Amino acid sequence: MIVVFGSINMDLVARVERIARPGETVLSRRADSFFGGKGANQAVAAARASRGGPVQVAMAGAIGDDPFGEACRKNLEANSVDGHALRVTDEPTGCAFITVDGSGENAITVASGANMALRSADLPDVLLSKASVLVLQMEVSIAENLDVAARARKAGVKVVWNFAPVPAIKERAAIAELLEVTDVLVVNEHEALAIAEIVGEPVDGDYLKAGTDIASSFGVTCIVTAGSRGAFAIAPDGSRVHAAARPIVPIDTTGAGDTFVGVLANGLAEGLEIGAAMERACAAASLSCLTAGAQAGMPDREALERHLAQV
């Protein structure tokens, strides 16, 4: 089983000619609503990739007692994500405000709401004991994430931690504490460089060197995603595995990183080697960019297998 501990949001998306600069207003014809939150996105991606396979997906998260919260709960259920560990709080359901420009690039502001009320205790031991992979992100309390990760490691569960969005951590000791309970760290180029800066590793803008230094310094497997350049897994001994990205013309890159993480978790839970798991994850992330919305383009298992079979 894959267990995702993390955020649940409703995404409000506006398409713009260009993303506004500070102090600037740009107009959009309309705003559309989509299901989101990095935790929920990763759970849905994992569940769709798992559908018809041997692995189940469950999620622990927090929602508000409001229409957005009920809609998000039903959406997880419709995507075969076990939601028995969802908690309804007095805080409003989280919302993300997203602008997407003509090239598919995006800018995102998140109002956390109920996500910051999520507690480690919301993930019961009986559910964690069934897991082979735990997936975490940075949109809920870091302290609660750390507690859940420590519990998972003690139970022999593989911890996959997506260091996104980059939190306001400035101390090497805080990063070390996080990585001590992590088996696989997933970052993009910018996140890899941000960690390297925090821990004082001089990498001169080289994201692969950053990933290598993180892996060797903290004894984790560091996966760096690099958009059209694919993804690189770097082991503590410095060895690398590369998975290529499929060439596409993106419509909306929102959720591509979450798709990668969810499908990677599925591959690891099904016993794939890291390279094969990343190949599937890169293909799924590419497919997700062909449809607007974080979850709308996430492929199911059948669509992913068809895509992987193409030369």
Rank of each mutant, 00 (worst) to 15 (best):
I169T: 06
M59Y: 04
D90L: 15
A243T: 00
Q295N: 12
V88W: 05
G53L: 06
R119Y: 06
T254M: 11
P250N: 04
R18G: 07
E17C: 11
A215I: 04
E91M: 15
D125P: 12
P54S: 10
A192Q: 04
L208I: 11
G200D: 07
A152G: 08
A174I: 09
A143E: 14
D11G: 02
N9S: 04
E270Y: 05
L179K: 10
A58L: 04
I2N: 00
A71L: 11
D147W: 11
I248Y: 06
T253M: 05
P67E: 07
K130G: 07
G238Y: 14
C282N: 12
D237I: 08
I169Y: 02
Q42C: 04
P202G: 11
F97V: 12
S129K: 13
L27V: 13
V135L: 00
D11R: 02
A40E: 01
L128T: 06
D206E: 08
L208E: 05
D204T: 13
S239C: 13
A168S: 15
G102H: 14
E105T: 15
N75V: 11
A107I: 03
G205A: 08
I234P: 00
L123N: 00
A283Q: 03
S216V: 11
V166D: 03
A231M: 03
S286Y: 01
P67L: 10
V135E: 01
L308N: 05
H190D: 14
A281Y: 07
